[in-house]
């Protein structure tokens, strides 16, 4: 093969459009928690994110740990599990396109649940340390991030009330996360 003509160089030109970075950027733009951020900051986040694949039954995080990571499920599914002394119970399941752990990015907390891959699962992961570092450099990003979180919590409780309030009178006495 000759590499001397300029036409040829198109054959093996390195382009960024199909890189993992570009995929990450496209993904982040779909997630409400991040979508309010300006593009140049999103690029930085996309650069700092990493794609990780978990095998079936691998733990994404474990109850009691403070792993400080947020997950976006690109492919596969995962189960949220509450572990007790008398055994563990599956709380719910998450599939492709779900974003979890935005709150874990904002502050320290130990996980109340474990998250376990149900099938081979690929996630986009962002770590708190990196996120906080960006917030430190660009403090005006904090507000949109918090707003995203709060909207999330409100939407969740509204949804819960409208769907389950009749099923379980007792549970509802303990509701009120959004007014904390």
């Amino acid at each position: 093969m000759s590499l001397n003509s300029d036409k040829d160089s198109a054959n093996h030109s390195v382009d960024a459009s199909s890189s993992e970075f570009q995929e990450n950027l496209a993904t982040l733009r779909q997630i409400p928690f991040f979508s309010k951020l300006p593009l140049d900051k999103l690029k930085l986040l996309a650069y700092l994110c990493s794609q990780v694949t978990f095998k079936t039954d691998d733990y994404l995080f474990t109850q009691g740990d403070d792993d400080g990571q947020a997950f976006y499920i690109i492919e596969g599914s995962a189960q949220l599990i509450f572990e007790r002394e008398d055994g563990s119970a599956v709380v719910r399941e998450y599939g492709k396109g779900v974003f979890l752990g935005g709150i874990a990015l904002l502050g320290k907390s130990r996980r109340i649940y474990s998250l376990k891959a149900k099938a081979s699962t690929t996630c986009l992961i962002l770590e708190r340390e990196k996120f906080i570092r960006i917030i430190e450099k660009f403090p005006d990003l904090l507000l949109p991030a918090i707003q995203g979180s709060i909207e999330n919590i409100h939407a969740w409780e509204k949804h819960f009330l409208s769907h389950h309030s009749k099923d379980c009178q007792q549970c509802c006495q303990h509701l009120g996360v959004s007014v904390l």
Binding site: N11, D15, A16, S18, S19, E20, F21, N24, Q51
Partner: peptide, 13 residues
């Protein structure tokens, strides 16, 4: 360094 993709052709080269 995932900011660019790495073409197979270059790998072979």
């Amino acid at each position: 360094h995932k900011i660019v993709s790495f073409p197979q052709l270059l790998e072979d080269l």
